[in-house]
Simulated assay, not measured.
Amino acid sequence: MKLSSYRETNLPSMSIKIKYAIWLLISNLFFLTNIPYPNKIKILFLKAFGAKIGKKSIIKPWVKIKFPWELEIGDDVWLGENVWIDNISKVSIGNNVCISQNTFILTGNHNYRKETFDLITLPIIIEDNVWITANCLIANGVTIGKNSLILLSSTVISSTEENGVYRGNPAIKIKNKL
């Protein structure tokens, strides 16, 4: 890989750059802070920037969201402290989902096999009734199956089956959920 060969493709338009700059200001003031702003205010801002959000979601302090317009959240979702959703592609989160603190959701990566280090972006889908426990990493292109449990500090690099309990780096299924 030669980083000098990297060429950014699909550069955002000026209007997207301005939208993102305004979002960064809002995000720093209302999300990346210890000030306990009401969830209604955070959700109002996310929706104003294009996020689709269901009912009764909770967004704890220090949640970092790259592009709200690439985010869909269902009903009764909990985003814990320091969750980072680096969503340059779509992230869809179902209903009754808990994403615990320090979890990193990453939709982009680079192709290390190409000298040009091309950017690869793929969506992430987290289906209903999922708990992703603390300090996990969810990689681009992954679907977390319904009723799954991702255990502490796991790295999910491939899609999971429904009703599974996963652990490790890379995460592997250790049993069926009861």
Rank of each mutant, 00 (worst) to 15 (best):
L122T: 13
L122P: 13
L122H: 11
P123Q: 15
P123M: 15
P123C: 14
P123A: 10
I124Y: 06
I124S: 04
I125N: 13
I125V: 14
I125D: 11
I126C: 03
I126N: 00
E127L: 10
E127K: 15
E127G: 05
E127Y: 01
D128C: 05
D128I: 05
N129F: 05
V130C: 00
V130A: 00
W131F: 08
W131A: 06
W131I: 07
W131R: 03
I132T: 08
I132G: 04
I132K: 04
I132N: 01
T133I: 09
T133D: 10
T133N: 09
T133Q: 10
T133R: 09
T133E: 12
T133K: 08
T133G: 01
A134D: 02
A134W: 04
A134T: 06
A134N: 08
A134P: 01
N135H: 15
N135Y: 13
N135G: 11
N135V: 08
C136E: 06
C136M: 10
C136L: 10
C136H: 04
C136P: 06
L137D: 02
L137I: 15
L137M: 14
L137F: 13
L137Y: 11
L137Q: 08
L137R: 02
L137K: 05
I138S: 05
I138R: 06
I138G: 02
A139C: 14
N140Y: 13
N140K: 09
G141P: 15
G141R: 11
G141M: 11
V142F: 09
V142M: 06
V142P: 04
V142W: 09
V142T: 03
T143Q: 06
T143Y: 09
T143S: 05
T143H: 06
T143C: 02
I144V: 14
I144S: 07
I144K: 08
I144C: 06
G145W: 12
G145Q: 14
G145E: 14
G145S: 13
K146T: 07
K146W: 02
K146S: 08
K146Q: 11
N147C: 05
S148I: 03
L149E: 09
L149R: 13
L149S: 11
L149N: 11
L149W: 14
I150P: 00
I150D: 03
L151R: 10
L152S: 07
L152G: 01
S153M: 07
S154V: 08
S154C: 11
T155V: 15
T155C: 13
T155P: 04
T155D: 07
T155K: 12
V156T: 04
V156M: 07
V156S: 01
V156Y: 06
I157Q: 08
I157T: 14
I157L: 10
I157R: 03
I157E: 03
I157H: 06
S158H: 11
S158L: 12
S158C: 11
